[in-house]
Write a protein that binds this DNA or RNA. Sequence first.
DNA 1: CGTGCCCCTGACAACGTTGTCCAGGCCCTA
DNA 2: TAGGGCCTGGACAACGTTGTCAGGGGCACG
Lengths: 354, 354
Amino acid sequence: MAGTDRFPRVPGRTRSPELRYGNRPTMKDVAARAGVGLKTVSRVVNGEPGVTVETERRVQEAIDSLGFRRNDSARVLRKGRTASIGLVLEDLADPFYGPLSRAVEEVARAHGALLINGSSAEDPEREQELALALCARRVDGLIVIPAGDDHRYLEPEIKAGVATVFVDRPAGRIDADAVLSDSFGGSRAGVAHLIAHGHRRIGFIGDQPRIHTATERLRGYRTAMEDAELPVAPSWVALGSTAPEAVRDAVVDMVAGPEPVTALFAGNNRVTVTALRALADHQQRIALVGFDDLELADLLHITVIAQDAAALGRTAAERLFRRLDGIDDRPAQVTLKTTLIPRGSGEIPPGTIH
Amino acid sequence: MAGTDRFPRVPGRTRSPELRYGNRPTMKDVAARAGVGLKTVSRVVNGEPGVTVETERRVQEAIDSLGFRRNDSARVLRKGRTASIGLVLEDLADPFYGPLSRAVEEVARAHGALLINGSSAEDPEREQELALALCARRVDGLIVIPAGDDHRYLEPEIKAGVATVFVDRPAGRIDADAVLSDSFGGSRAGVAHLIAHGHRRIGFIGDQPRIHTATERLRGYRTAMEDAELPVAPSWVALGSTAPEAVRDAVVDMVAGPEPVTALFAGNNRVTVTALRALADHQQRIALVGFDDLELADLLHITVIAQDAAALGRTAAERLFRRLDGIDDRPAQVTLKTTLIPRGSGEIPPGTIH
DNA sequence: CGTGCCCCTGACAACGTTGTCCAGGCCCTA
DNA sequence: TAGGGCCTGGACAACGTTGTCAGGGGCACG
């Protein structure tokens, strides 16, 4: 009697007035209804052996009629594994991260795990806040696209067993797995491509030097120029904000400056897009190669250095689950090759300037 | 004694050999270390009042030295709220959903909630599986972009108090909140725009009729044609697969058929992209208006019916949290206006066909 | 100096599940 | 027929946290 009822479980105590899970049936309720023990219900729910067909039928019936659904929070607490992984992105809305998170999700799904994610919006503080919130949820693993350059705050977590893999940019100040694109090699090849098409004065527009990929790409640019024994005028390099206005100004300066560039290398997809718009607005048609592919780049004939975002995500997730499966390699960096895709904009010869 | 140690808590029993959370310190450990009671630690961790500065300092010290982090799974079990919401997308990699999920995330963040998400890949079964897995996690609310057309499986969940909002497409066979774009009005306006520019033979390529937005957009097309008293030849309408090959074939058929169309209305962004590629390949330049905006549409001069993906996500999330805050309106459908953005492709007059 | 009040602290139960262990019943064999 | 083994089912504790409640100590006031 009183005790199989849902309300009140215990005479007059303890139950707080707040809404719980809308007051859902528990295994206890199912057990009472089916006239079996608690553990038997658990067995049926989890498909464990050791239950007669007849008992199973009765339990199943009770489950259906009550609309019972196992409470995974309780399960997680008991089992110690959450079967979920966290993904800290830089910006969910950036088209580059769509395929990446999709790939992570596919791998997670294949391992029966859910994906919890959020954006850092390029803010290191927010990255930390988010990553730690995910750890508090006890995600089994963490995939992080770094916004900041100091990840020591994750050290206790990693030590406590949270498998962690960094993607797109390496971890800062800690030794951890990272899956990267070959920013240096990609830029170098892209700039060499422009040089091979006759360009001597080539501009570079990139992200803040705080960001690892940005400096790597700049380094690729400089190396390619050096390889060809070409000088680099300071006015040809713009780093810093990738906000549209800033990039727009940079483009205009480089094209109209005293030593006008005949070609441009754009350090990431946002820069490429803005540069294209600026050039179109000013009716300039100079050579352009961009890092990162774009959805409609083929129709716009944009030559790009393509990274395989899906492969980045997949590789990172696979590495993560390998760790979760107990394989315990030393932390390592994996670098994925980039591909130069010539589509026209990178093959425009110099001297077509108006 | 024995009991404040982490291993073994209880002489020889119960602790299973599997990995738990990498054996993290608990409040109990912190309490032991600080020489205070369990509840006092809880107070400090949660910033509750009623703790002396001195005690707080001691506890904080113990927390830092042990690297304690509150276990939110346990908290969730106890409190009954998970402070997380689930988002079931159709495809994370589709650029349309990037801004949408970003907007949802922003609202969630503002309410202190985390976002758990996954893609249904347009598969109704997978949508259900995912949605129910999220419910088992006891997410407080659910935002669903439907892949299927029967959502009765969510009835017990909604009844049990899971706030649920559908986005982009209405729920099937249940009465629930939905936030939609005005597919009908948008298409109608887009097709009317083509008609206003002199077109009489206009093709429509859309998604499977199973999908609500697809039929609404088709209805908009038909209505616009009727409004102008124009006939619609069966060969001008292609529904079904939006796989690239199918769309490509449809475009070719319409352009080269016995009654060639002079303009095309594309039912969604994927169709628009493929149609553009097909037209470019065949060096055809006919008028085109597409439903959904695209990243580089301005540079390609594509006229589109733009939906505000971010507004869809934001509106849905806000509605969700209103429900979670206890406001209990009747389920309702909200429709957001679309915008026609003329950029060139929709203003090409007929007769430019080669 | 005594009484009463308030502030701080801690013991305890409960959240819903799963792992462990034990009891009882059945069947099979000697 | 008795004994042993196997199969099924259930009681119980534990996961780590928070809400409730009660006790103890200090301070102010009469």
